[in-house]
Amino acid sequence: MKFSSIIYVLLVFSFLTMTALSIYYYLQIQQDKVKISQAVSSGTPLPDYHFALIGEELDHDYWRLVGKGAKQNETEYDVFVEYEGPERSNPEEQLKLLDKAIKKKVDGIIVQALNDEFTPLIDLAVGKGIPVITIDTDSPDSLRSAYIGTDNYAAGQLAGKALIEDTGGEAVVGIVTGRFNNTHHSLRVEGFRDVIEQEAGIDIVAIEESNIDRIGAEEKAHNMLTEHKEITALYGTSALDGTGISEAAESLDRQDLYVITFDTLEENLRLLEKGKVDALVEQQPWKMGHQSVKIMTDLINEKQVKKIHHTNSSIVRKQNLPYRQDLRGGRQ
């Protein structure tokens, strides 16, 4: 193919791509216009502000709680929270949604910043006068105004201390992490390692990524337990990792395996009750979403706002469950 033909093909492809994006954005804008028209026709006053909340994964209980917390604060602060995210964890799709929010000129953006690729777009938004809050995963090198969420390094340390306490400081450990290049998972691994490596009786012999997928976690845990039969404990850095690990352990009849993972979601609480998981690192997704709306409103109204808002983390074991029924209700 001649060079001129290649250029022609690329130009056509670029035109089609831009056309498709234009249509996509047009349809999104029309959907918002319908919502606004319905509010006007019903006599409902329009909210003062329009915020975009961009999560990691819509089809996940954790992010449903984040969205629920934010939406429940709409009335108090007279805002409209447009909650969006990929159906499954996909940083590239999140970046597209962030770009769309900037183009729509929303009043504020609340976004999970999974990696360094989010920094330029966050800075672009701020440069256009749109304040940005990071949620669940921070982007400290960006121009974001504040972060709300777990101290993920400290949460990893908490998991390490729980494993040491529960195993008496004697264990051979495998780690199943969501993604190597996701900042919050990396910090959870780093904090865990820094605590575990101080214990002479504990060794980490393998680490694999699950791609934040239940089947992926089961596959990696199964392979790990098969290749390293000496493993006595597994640590998962996401909610789905824990589910996959427990299924792998059950398929290999490893009832002696110690399992610690993240998030007090309904399925993980059932595994904890049944003894298939030994400990959970509790986060507060509802509070993250709920408080993010207040922080963003304060920013817009030029009130003094702290840069870092760490929500609490704690360890939940089976014996805690009779006293922690609030974990099931969503309001964390």
Score class of each variant (00 low, 15 high):
residue 140 P to L: 04
residue 142 S to M: 09
residue 258 Y to F: 12
residue 69 G to R: 01
residue 263 D to V: 05
residue 221 A to M: 08
residue 186 S to A: 13
residue 329 G to H: 10
residue 302 E to Y: 11
residue 74 E to S: 07
residue 239 A to Q: 05
residue 290 H to N: 14
residue 260 I to K: 12
residue 142 S to H: 05
residue 277 V to Q: 13
residue 312 N to G: 07
residue 311 T to H: 08
residue 87 E to C: 02
residue 144 R to H: 06
residue 101 A to K: 01
residue 188 R to I: 02
residue 302 E to W: 03
residue 99 D to N: 11
residue 329 G to I: 09
residue 21 L to T: 00
residue 99 D to T: 10
residue 90 N to H: 04
residue 200 A to L: 06
residue 18 M to P: 00
residue 66 V to F: 02
residue 285 P to L: 13
residue 316 V to Y: 01
residue 204 I to K: 05
residue 203 D to C: 06
residue 51 F to E: 09
residue 183 T to D: 07
residue 42 S to Y: 10
residue 132 V to A: 04
residue 247 E to L: 10
residue 171 A to M: 11
residue 199 E to A: 12
residue 305 V to N: 04
residue 162 A to K: 13
residue 128 K to P: 00
residue 213 D to M: 05
residue 204 I to S: 08
residue 275 G to F: 15
residue 44 T to L: 12
residue 293 V to K: 03
residue 138 D to E: 13
residue 197 E to V: 09
residue 260 I to H: 13
residue 133 I to Y: 02
residue 55 G to N: 00
residue 161 K to Q: 15
residue 289 G to T: 01
residue 188 R to L: 06
residue 214 R to A: 09
residue 216 G to E: 10
residue 212 I to R: 02
residue 235 Y to C: 11
residue 293 V to H: 03
residue 98 L to H: 05
residue 257 L to N: 05
residue 203 D to E: 15
residue 214 R to W: 06
residue 307 K to S: 11
residue 153 Y to K: 15
residue 125 A to D: 03
residue 223 N to K: 12
residue 65 L to K: 07
residue 190 E to D: 11
residue 110 I to Q: 02
residue 288 M to D: 06
residue 95 L to Y: 06
residue 51 F to D: 10
residue 315 I to P: 06
residue 321 L to P: 11
residue 273 E to P: 08
residue 294 K to V: 08
residue 180 F to A: 12
residue 228 H to M: 12
residue 5 S to C: 01
residue 72 Q to H: 01
residue 120 P to T: 05
residue 92 E to I: 00
residue 321 L to S: 07
residue 63 W to M: 02
residue 323 Y to V: 06
residue 67 G to D: 01
residue 284 Q to M: 15
residue 332 Q to N: 13
residue 272 L to I: 12
residue 99 D to R: 08
residue 114 L to W: 07
residue 22 S to F: 08
residue 2 K to Q: 10
residue 79 V to S: 00
residue 8 Y to G: 03
residue 208 E to N: 12
residue 79 V to C: 02
residue 289 G to P: 03
residue 224 M to Q: 08
